[in-house]
Write a protein that binds this DNA or RNA. Structure first.
Lengths: 216, 216
DNA sequence: GGAGCTTCGTTAAAAAAATCACAATCTCAG
DNA sequence: CTGAGATTGTGATTTTTTTAACGAAGCTCC
């Protein structure tokens, strides 16, 4: 099929598929059917086939999908079959935790610069990286070939960090700060907000008990 | 309206509305129209009115929404107008960062227990909490009135942590481990996965440059 | 107190997404 | 080499979600 417009929801699910497929690969599975994969991901089998069809034909009729090949194909399709260099802005609790998080490197996202505007933090070495003044983002982004910025500042400093990153010519931002940020159209933003998820959870739990009460 | 079924997407947006409204409140705004709110959230004004209508009538025709009242109403609707007690399982880098994260308490999510299965960590005090053996989750969940579990273990230990939490009678789980977990139907799960967001970002950036190339 | 302006809540229409259903095609056994 | 069984890819259908349109309702100013 290889369609033009790909639903946002599809992309989101692709990441889930990768996660599950990698688990299957660890467990030694070589082939998986859309039905089996669907069960683990809690989606409809047709959904999976349709999602994959947006990117190409990866399956074998009568057989299913070869796990390793599918992982590779999906990663290629998403553009995560290569190394992405990132800069982290805001070396607080969360920032430090992310800098020490091995998984980033494992998944091809290399944090190659750590930035902060606090003079007491500048010069400190965290996880092998010297903390650099945020004002120097421009030169460093060029020098190190950074494409993605990770914001872990407090909310009130998120927009300033954004501005530095945008000015430096970054292409995408992963924002952990609990604040909306504004960027020019050509820059992509993704928000990671624990509280969104906690709110969802609280709502589901509250609703669940409400329904239970109604039924009783 | 006060409808039965509320779209998942609506709930997700509610969290965004709260975030933006709290920003507006900080800036001293007392009233906001659906149109103004929509612009900041990058959604359609009708969308906002419809989303809010699922929960009740919060606006005043000809005026808009009173910011503080709306925040309160939304929080009530979502069930986050109270304290939720949570337990964190997995005191690694990320776990420590979350334990030290003031924002949790601020938003009504109190982490009242820290658990780990590593004997070297048990007994250690992190952010005022003594790390307790994961096996003792059952007694502690009861004793402390914990309703939500936060998993920050490595992926291979996520299911075990889940089992302890489920057995302890937890109602919801926020899973930071990059692995799918299985739970009984009555337990809700939310996944926080940075890499899902990074994958989305990578895809958007890749696609963006592809389109640019096509157009050029 | 009422005309005019504004903005909500809600119904109707449009668009998008998910699901179904089945032809196409692959494997494998005999 | 053929037929049975399995499972994909995709067009058709259904469901859900989003957007548009408009009547109802409140404020302001005369």
């Amino acid at each position: 099929m290889k369609s033009e417009h790909i639903p946002r929801a599809t992309i989101q699910r692709m990441a889930v598929y990768i996660q599950v497929l990698e688990g299957l690969a660890r467990d030694g599975a070589t082939v998986v059917s859309s039905e089996a994969l669907a069960r683990t991901c809690s989606v409809n089998p047709s959904q999976i086939r349709k999602d994959l069809a947006y990117f190409g034909e990866f399956g074998v009729r009568g057989v299913g999908y070869y796990v390793q090949d599918l992982i590779t194909s999906i990663k290629q399709s998403l553009g995560v079959d290569r190394v992405w260099k990132t800069a982290l802005v805001g070396v607080g609790n969360l920032g430090r935790a992310l800098l020490n998080h091995r998984e980033f490197r494992l998944r091809g996202f290399h944090i190659v610069g750590a930035f902060d505007c606090d003079p007491f933090k500048i010069g400190e070495v965290v996880s092998g990286l010297e903390v650099i003044c945020s004002r120097r983002l421009g030169e460093k982004v060029d020098e190190l070939g950074i494409e993605i910025g990770i914001i872990t500042t407090p909310p009130e400093r998120a927009q300033r960090a954004t501005n530095y990153l945008v000015q430096a010519g970054i292409k995408g931002i992963l924002n952990f700060a609990p604040a909306r940020i504004t960027v020019p159209e050509e820059v992509s933003v993704e928000y990671v907000d624990f509280f969104h998820h906690l709110y969802n959870l609280a709502f589901k739990i509250t609703l669940g008990s409400q329904i239970a009460e109604d039924e009783a």
